[in-house]
Design a protein around this nucleic acid. Structure first.
Lengths: 363, 363
DNA sequence: CCTTGACATGAAAACGGTTTCATATTATGC
DNA sequence: GCATAATATGAAACCGTTTTCATGTCAAGG
């Protein structure tokens, strides 16, 4: 094992002190150009790489960003992480990854993160409510940025989308296609995004002057199984009460819905149009392909990193004039979503839908 | 920001020296049970978490495992990473993640990893050849474990599968189904696994007494596009020369093949049976669903971590008696694969294949 | 009862940087 | 040409651990 070359070696070889080498390393301005030059050259020659551990210890700060994620197999995660990784790469920072495997207390992990004593900030990818411990830490000054969902009031800086507006778009798309009775399969109530998507759905119905029928709102868990359950529930409805379309709060549930619908002999979109939410990779490949709201996961990752680093490099945000009471509501970066039209909503097979309308009006 | 409680505080409160506290922390045996008890209690009370940075600096080693991965969006990666994350979680170690985004020199990243000075070992997920820099580091004593592929001679400890045998199984499956003219779309030659899969294919042909036709071997890149290209190439073949089945060296290419085949009016599996390799999540969802070799990605991740840590905790492997020359060939953990039979190979629709044989023999 | 280890503990020196404070050097103003 | 400020550098303290070495204590052996 090669003996590590340290700042001291560089100092000796360049004929300066450790302090000066450190200054060069940290790009301090008060080093004579000539000296800096010499030091840099020696570092180059020696293949010197400063120890982040030592720097972190001495400087009290660190170059490590803790990233807390759900399991990678959750389909939205890889794309987010790709954005995170790519953004980090352009900086001096590194990623320390904490994956919350199901069945593990989030608090345990958060504590573990701190145990590092290395991680100076935290990027949390968490659909669903935040743990109290996390909020506590954030309030103690730990820079934290959350991707995606948020507990009731947005208490932490975050990056996400406008769930309400997006759900509105999705529902409105169905309405424009001529569907009148539109159901909704919603996510669990503890997810803020589930509530917002529900609100968007309601709003669209209202704005279109369509009646709201509570019997058409189903409770889901954001998991595939609850999509299947919903399809079954729908199929057992008397024909006259069946909806013509359904807005499902995430793609995962939509998959379950589609597969159960197929098994039940329900044709999508002829018998029932479906719109999902997320646009995860599979959505373009299920049959029928899923019309859905595309979340910009990659961009969310990138933006989260940028936000986090800007927080870290000092609160450079100028207080808004006139609101100088010192309180800054946490920043939220809201990225645009997009409706991706595929087969499941029937937009691509309008003629068939017209047939369907006929047969329905015959009843 | 709360002032961090250090080992010194604990020492003072417990009425012992820093050294003793350190011993307790590291579970050294030579501490009186009573003392240990007291120290532990104080640590508990104070919510003490030792600084990994300091420990790493002082101890010369570190509790960080560097993980070098391809982009997360490469479909095999999330599952591997899940295994890695889960295995790590049961240890004191943490993951520092380095994602190699396309178009970035691997050497740059490897250097960056070392720059950390934190990472004491490396887990490399790399299909394709290893960079010289990596080999150099490994030979300098850095513990490295590679997942999946390997450069020509297996120079580093690794975890993977037996590509040759798996490809043999895949091809033999087609043979058993009665296909005689079996094509192969292979991966790029610089991938060892591509070569091995090719060999397995050849071997199966040989063992079955089937003639090998070089015209039926196509060159691919492991990417979707080359699957499409292959389908086109096949379709332009004179009818009499067309294969009845094809073994495609990875699922990604198989997807391209399937979609192009559909566009070309080639029915799968009736006109042509397809077997892939990998069993990534999409494989169960494309139409027709893909018969393929399942790689145990999750287990590969877990095993790689275990191997790496065993390497780290001292070369505890007893030299084999009689081979005491000191040279230890690097360990390779080879996990079993499994053939997953779905629609694309035609096994599920045998009757149709029989029809097909009829029509073929009519020609 | 005294020696010899074994065992438990403490003091202090690393580890590789950053940072503060003092000092040496140079530039500036009069 | 000299006082003064600005700039460049060095010495040493410090960050929170681990580790080595020395010391103190206690039980066993002679």
């Amino acid at each position: 094992m090669k003996p590590k070359v340290t700042i001291e070696d560089i100092a000796r070889l360049a004929g300066v002190s450790k302090a000066t080498v450190s200054r060069v390393l940290n790009e301090r301005s008060n080093v004579k150009a000539e000296t800096r030059e010499r030091v840099l050259r020696v570092m180059q020659e020696q293949g010197f790489v400063p120890s982040l551990a030592a720097a972190g210890l001495a400087g009290g700060r660190s170059r490590l960003v803790g990233v807390l994620t759900p399991p990678f197999t959750q389909p939205t995660v890889p794309e987010i992480l790709r954005g995170v990784a790519e953004a980090i790469e352009h900086t001096d920072y590194e990623i320390v990854l904490y994956s919350t495997n199901a069945g593990q207390s989030p608090t345990t992990i958060v504590n573990r993160i701190l145990a590092l004593g290395l991680t100076s900030c935290l990027l949390v990818i968490q659909p669903g409510p935040l743990t109290p411990r996390l909020l506590q830490l954030a309030s103690q000054g730990l820079p934290v940025v959350v991707i995606d969902d948020q507990g009731p009031p947005p208490e932490l800086p975050s990056v996400g989308i406008d769930n309400r507006v997006s759900a509105y778009q999705a529902t409105m798309h169905l309405i424009r296609l001529g569907y009148r009775r539109i159901a909704h399969l919603q996510g669990p109530a503890e997810f803020r995004c589930a509530q917002e998507r529900y609100q968007g759905y309601r709003q669209a119905l209202d704005d279109a002057g369509l009646p709201f029928d509570p019997a058409l709102v189903f409770n889901g868990t954001f998991e595939t199984a609850s999509g299947r359950a919903c399809a079954v529930a729908l199929a057992t409805l008397p024909l006259a009460e069946r909806p013509e379309a359904i807005f499902i709060a995430n793609d995962q549930m939509a998959f379950g819905f589609l597969s159960a619908a197929e098994a039940l002999g329900l044709r999508i979109p002829q018998d029932l149009a479906v719109v999902g939410f997320d646009d995860i990779p599979l959505s373009a490949h299920v049959r029928p392909t899923l019309t859905t709201i595309k979340q910009p996961f990659y961009e969310m990752g990138r933006n989260a990193v940028e936000l986090l680093l800007s927080l870290l490099h000092g609160p450079a945000m100028q207080p808004v004039a006139g609101a100088e009471d010192g309180y800054q509501p946490p920043i939220r970066i809201q990225l645009p979503t997009r409706l991706v039209i595929r087969e499941s909503c029937g937009a691509l097979t309008l003629h068939r839908r017209q047939e369907q309308e006929h047969s329905l009006s015959d009843e």
